[in-house]
Amino acid sequence: MNGSGYEAPRTVEETVTLLQQANGAARVLAGGTDLLAQMKMGMTSPALLIDVKKIPELASIEQTADGGFRIGAAVCGAALAEHAALVAAWPGIVEAARLIGSEQIQGRASLGGNLCNGSPAADSVPALIAAGATCTIAGPGGTRSVAVEDVITAPGKTCLATGELVVDFRLPPRPDGSDARAAKAGDAYLRMIPRSEMDIAIVGAGVSLTLDEAGVCTAARVGLGAVAATPLRVDAAAAALIGTTLDDAALAAAGEAASAAARPIDDKRGTIAYRKQVAGVLTRRAAKIALARAGGNG
């Protein structure tokens, strides 16, 4: 066991080795905005913290050859917003990530950390689910690609095995909108919080759409947060949008599907009835924003 308490490796391979050697007693430190707060509250006390922000693949964003994006798992929210191409292609993901905490938190908090904290209310996760994002997980056996919606398995739990870490997120290419007659796409994320900032979502809804040249929705994905033990992909809500121009009836149907899919709990942040109801409202509203971003008749 490494007795240093803190390591800042430069490669994924070193990180995997450190995680393996620690055998569960280590935690990956990306932005630290959840982990260090949990340590302060006495909820966890890992022997070793492995700072992954000095690993180039985890700390960078790049556009891939197919026109999609590769986002390092430890890139902070503020840096996402500084990447103009990413903001143009995936405004919903960036706005979801940017909703996490304050500007101070944005200087640190990452998509990887938001996902691996395992919270059902993680703001970026429904937007990533809606986008069809996958993440690259590295471990002792090499790397694997996992859909974002399959990562969180229960509150605070993920599918990552000992020795594994999330390296990056992959976003598919978007129609770029340069041809007025071609398909266009848009995404959006909304959350309900009691204040205007600095809260954990009571409900979060992410919607991603593709429209054909006639403005008919050809593809849609919907992600919901804070309405079940894990963030949800809600295919029934997406299905209610596909094939429509997102008229009021389609939006209402998508909202109803989202409410029906929600299986929330009563807790200090909200009630079952409230969460189900507002899941529908936010899905509807997020779909309208995504529609407008795709150039539809929102």
């Binding site: 009691p194 204040r195 205007s196 900032e197 600095m198 809260d199 954990i200 200090k268």
Partner: peptide, 29 residues
């Protein structure tokens, strides 16, 4: 009026002993 409250569980333990869930107004509120 809007958001602040002590929330207790059945055992008498405060469930929101931090500024995250004890929701005081922030500047944008």
């Amino acid at each position: 009026a809007l958001n602040e409250e002590y929330i207790y569980d059945a055992d008498g333990k405060m469930e929101n002993p931090g500024f995250l869930d004890y929701r005081m107004p922030v500047a944008s509120d």
